[in-house]
């Protein structure tokens, strides 16, 4: 398990990588809204194009992005088939016994596939592939900071996220080590029924929890020694100031949404 990398962050130099993470989060939300505005051939074509444009802007090999889609391939295929068989319409293309396939069904299957794929690629490109988890956490803390006025412990949640991210690789390694140690004593994790397998995990889980507790205690002491006393009066080394270039994408996405709405009104191409 050595060399495990958490999350999907792909280090590169690109306009998307250098964009303010706060802007990226807003863009992601708007992008999701936009994807639901699509209603006809032209707007879906534009959506697909925008997803590909994002991949190009993030300078991430298409192969890596497509690999990310592999996990949802089944869901994609399944929803597409559902749409093909269950959408009824006016233009009947094929009929065999009780199976009827309409042109509308084909369209809606293609549309839904484009929407899901664009959502996954788009959000991935805007956030997970191009933003480190820590930058994302900080950005969320910033965006939610107005809630502090309502006494929502925003900083505490952000700190918890940071620590979780920091300890995922450590505890993964630890799990691996404990499993190896128990295997050396003849533990068998891969045979037997469900209950037998769950039972075989007890010798791994108990030491893992004990160790996690110990680490938590150590870390809390270490943090106290480094003067941690909650979010009050705390400063940050990296304070991002919005630059002009960070604002441009916001205008672009609004324009994108506006275009989609116009397409809908004009009903260009096949419309559902």
């Amino acid at each position: 398990m050595k060399g495990i990398s958490f999350g999907q962050y792909y280090p590169a130099r690109s306009p998307l990588h250098s964009l303010d993470p706060r802007v990226k989060i807003i863009l992601t939300l708007l992008y999701i809204v936009c994807s639901f505005l699509c209603k006809n051939v032209l707007s879906y074509a534009l959506l697909l194009l925008s997803a590909l444009l994002l991949v190009a802007l993030g300078r991430i090999p298409l192969r890596i992005v497509l690999r990310g889609l592999r996990g949802v391939l089944f869901v994609l295929a399944f929803t597409a088939l559902l749409n093909v068989f269950w959408t009824s319409g006016e233009v009947l293309l094929f009929e065999w016994k009780f199976i009827k396939i309409y042109l509308e069904g084909i369209y809606s299957a293609v549309f839904i596939m484009i929407r899901i794929a664009a959502l996954i690629i788009g959000t991935g490109m805007l956030m997970t592939y191009t933003t480190t988890p820590i930058a994302l956490t900080n950005a969320i803390e910033d965006l939610l900071s107005p809630l502090k006025k309502l006494h929502v412990p925003v900083h505490t949640f952000a700190m918890m996220m940071t620590i979780a991210l920091r300890f995922i690789p450590t505890l993964t390694e630890e799990t691996d080590r404990i499993m190896t140690a128990q295997k050396a004593r003849g533990a068998d994790f891969s045979s037997g029924g469900l209950i037998a397998r769950a039972k075989a995990l007890i010798p791994v889980l108990i030491p893992l929890f004990v160790s996690a507790f110990n680490r938590a205690g150590d870390l809390a002491t270490a943090m106290e020694c480094r003067c941690y006393h909650g979010g009050e009066g705390r400063t940050r080394m990296n304070v991002r100031h919005m630059r002009f270039v960070d604002v441009i994408p916001l205008f672009l996405i609004v324009a994108f949404g506006a275009a989609l709405i116009v397409f809908n009104i004009l009903a260009i191409g096949y419309t559902l």
Binding site: R177, I178, A181, K183, R185, D188, P203, I206, P207
Partner: peptide, 20 residues
């Protein structure tokens, strides 16, 4: 392979972490 592990005993580094 499990039988081999009984014949070749391995005590890992910091083995106290495996007690459960």
């Amino acid at each position: 392979i499990r039988k081999i592990r009984f014949r070749v005993g391995l005590v890992m580094q910091y083995p106290e972490y495996q007690l459960f």
